[in-house]
């Protein structure tokens, strides 16, 4: 059997394979380029960007949890201008989609960064309304359907016709409402899930391990939550979903795609194995071949409901 078709079209964003890397877990690709050929990755959601450079939160910023971790980085990044000048040209050397994760503290800021970024040489914007690690903005926008609609609509208008992904938070009452609000406001695609909020306490010092107390939980432990949310969302929206949350092998990818994800992101697993993306791509290809599936898109949403 010839190689299966791996190309996916996420409502205008075409990836040569469905494996992307989650924002905040892959920097701007430079560190991982020493370990894995970035040409083998469908798309890179770059580290969350803000208008001005951000120093991020105090240390400790990480705490390990059973089959997962908490992070409290707080959107440390060099700012949008630096990204456009230094990181886009670097990433453009590779055959991988550049997906700019953009953040703001109010709607005006979201629109300003969206406008600047949409004019830059990126393939898509990922609107982050779900970061749990910043005081203002972030998660506050992602938990109320009316706010999700408002900010998405405004950013949609500020971004010309650039492909727009809205990244959803799992820290909500009803993910379907939130997803529908983003879709109605003009999102081309959804990515989900961002981290779940969590806490670890050191019983000896009786203080939280993270300097900021609460952080975002990721890793294999969150996977069932993420799969459920992708499944629920895929049942109500028409736009494609990029699924993520604890993916570390090809079986996880198949599970997310069966649940309804048109593509997936690998996040925390990159920290464990810097070459995980390539391994998952190889294993996924073998899986499709041995199951006589000649097009990856044929499994999307094919869970028996």
């Amino acid at each position: 059997m010839s190689n299966p078709i791996m190309k996916v079209d996420l409502n205008g964003l075409v990836l040569h394979n469905p494996i992307t890397v989650a924002s905040g877990t892959f920097g701007f690709g430079r560190e991982y380029a020493e370990y894995v050929d970035l040409n083998d990755i469908g798309g890179i959601m770059v580290k969350g960007l803000t208008l001005k450079p951000r120093a991020g939160n105090p240390s400790p910023r990480v705490a390990e949890t059973p089959m997962g971790m908490l992070n409290s980085v707080g959107l440390q990044n060099p700012g949008i201008e630096y990204f456009i000048e230094h990181e886009i040209p670097y990433l453009r050397q590779f055959n991988t989609a550049i997906i700019a994760n953009i953040n703001g503290t109010n709607i005006e800021e979201y629109c300003e960064i969206a406008e600047i970024t949409s004019k830059a040489d990126v393939d898509s914007l990922e609107l982050n309304i779900s970061c749990p690690n910043v005081k203002a903005g972030g998660l506050a926008f992602g938990t109320d359907p009316n706010m999700v609609y408002k900010v998405t609509k405004a950013v949609r208008e500020a971004s010309g016709n650039k492909h727009l992904i809205v990244k959803l938070s799992p820290n909500v009452k009803d993910i379907k409402e939130i997803a529908l609000a983003a879709e109605e406001a003009g999102a081309d695609c959804l990515s989900m899930i961002n981290t779940l909020t969590g806490m670890v306490i050191d019983i000896n010092s009786r203080t939280p391990i993270l300097a900021r107390g609460i952080g975002g939980m990721s890793g294999p432990a969150v996977k069932p939550v993420a799969v459920r949310m992708v499944y629920e969302t895929a049942g109500v929206v028409k736009i494609p979903i990029i699924g993520m949350g604890g993916i570390s092998n090809y079986k996880d990818v198949v599970e997310f795609m069966l649940a309804g994800a048109g593509a997936i992101s690998i996040g925390t697993a990159n920290f464990v194995d810097p070459r995980v993306t390539k391994r998952v791509l190889n294993d996924l290809t073998s899986y499709l071949k041995s199951n006589n599936i000649d097009n990856i898109n044929d499994i999307v949403g094919k869970v028996i409901r």
């Binding site: 920097g27 580290k47 240390s59 990480v62 990159n270 920290f271 810097p274």
Partner: peptide, 9 residues
């Protein structure tokens, strides 16, 4: 976490 400079923790 990552040990190679990507995750910023």
């Amino acid at each position: 976490a990552c040990g190679i400079g990507a995750c910023l923790v």
